[in-house]
Simulated scan of single mutants.
Amino acid sequence: MTAGVGRRARTIEEIGQNLMALQAVEPVNYRAYEPQAGDVFITSWAKSGTTMMQQMFHQLRMGAATGKGDMDFDDISRMTPWEDVALQNDFDMTVEQRASPRGFKSHREYERLPAGMRYVVTLRDPHQTYASFHRFFEGYLFEPGSISLDESMPLWLMGGPGGCDYYTHLLSWWARRDEPDTLLASYRWVVKNRPAMIRMLADFMGIELTGELAALVEDMTSREFMYAHKDKFNHQMICDSMTARLGITDFESTKVHDVGSDAKVVPPAIVEQIDAMWAERVTPVTGHRNFAELAAELGR
Rank of each mutant, 00 (worst) to 15 (best):
Y130P: 07
Y130V: 05
S132L: 04
R135F: 06
F136D: 02
E138L: 01
G139K: 07
Y140I: 10
E143I: 02
G145M: 07
I147K: 01
D150H: 14
S152F: 15
L155E: 11
L155K: 05
W156D: 07
W156Y: 15
L157F: 15
M158V: 06
M158L: 14
G160H: 02
G162V: 10
G163S: 06
C164A: 08
D165R: 12
Y166S: 01
T168D: 13
S172A: 05
S172V: 02
W174R: 00
W174G: 00
W174I: 00
R177D: 02
R177C: 00
R177K: 03
P180R: 07
P180S: 03
L183M: 14
S186D: 06
S186E: 09
A196D: 14
I198V: 13
L201A: 06
A202C: 08
F204Q: 05
M205H: 12
E212C: 10
A214L: 15
L216T: 06
V217M: 08
V217P: 06
E218D: 15
R223D: 15
R223N: 13
E224P: 06
E224G: 09
H229F: 03
Q236C: 06
C239Q: 14
D240H: 03
D240N: 11
D240C: 00
M242T: 10
M242Q: 12
T243V: 08
R245A: 00
R245K: 06
L246W: 10
